[in-house]
């Protein structure tokens, strides 16, 4: 029905050219980054288990180090994506064809 709302598109292509492919993998990485960050930031939950203690300075350095790394990674992804957005057509990650395969 909404399918009547929008004209049915032709199926997305099975294979992508190399640049679009790279771009999509980059988006995948960008999507995974917060998951990784969350996991690393959940490590503090394990501190203090079994009566052992962690020094505040060590804890602070750990949390901020992750922060800096995440920011750096996000900046790299964002800048690379920004460059490829100029050259490659804006791809849509939601319609990514499941049948998409690497272009070997």
């Amino acid at each position: 029905m909404s399918d009547t709302g929008g004209p049915r598109r032709t199926r997305p292509p099975l294979f992508l050219e190399r640049r679009s492919y790279r771009r999509r993998r980059l988006i995948d990485a960008a999507r995974l980054l917060p998951v990784l960050g969350l996991m690393l930031w959940l490590v503090p939950l394990l501190w203090g288990i079994g009566g052992r203690t962690v020094s505040a300075s060590g804890a602070g350095i750990y949390i901020f180090a992750i922060w800096v790394l995440l920011i750096l990674a996000a900046a790299v992804f964002a800048i690379t994506l920004g460059r490829s957005a100029g050259s490659a057509r804006e791809v849509d990650p939601e319609t990514r064809a499941e049948e998409e395969r690497p272009p070997w």
């Binding site: 988006i27 960008a30 999507r31 980054l33 917060p34 998951v35 960050g37 969350l38 930031w41 949390i63 922060w67 995440l70 920011i71 996000a74 990650p93």
Partner: peptide, 16 residues
Amino acid sequence: LTIYLGPSLVMIGWWW
């Protein structure tokens, strides 16, 4: 820190 960590993750995960 939690007040800043949450938004950082949401911003870093802007593709979501």
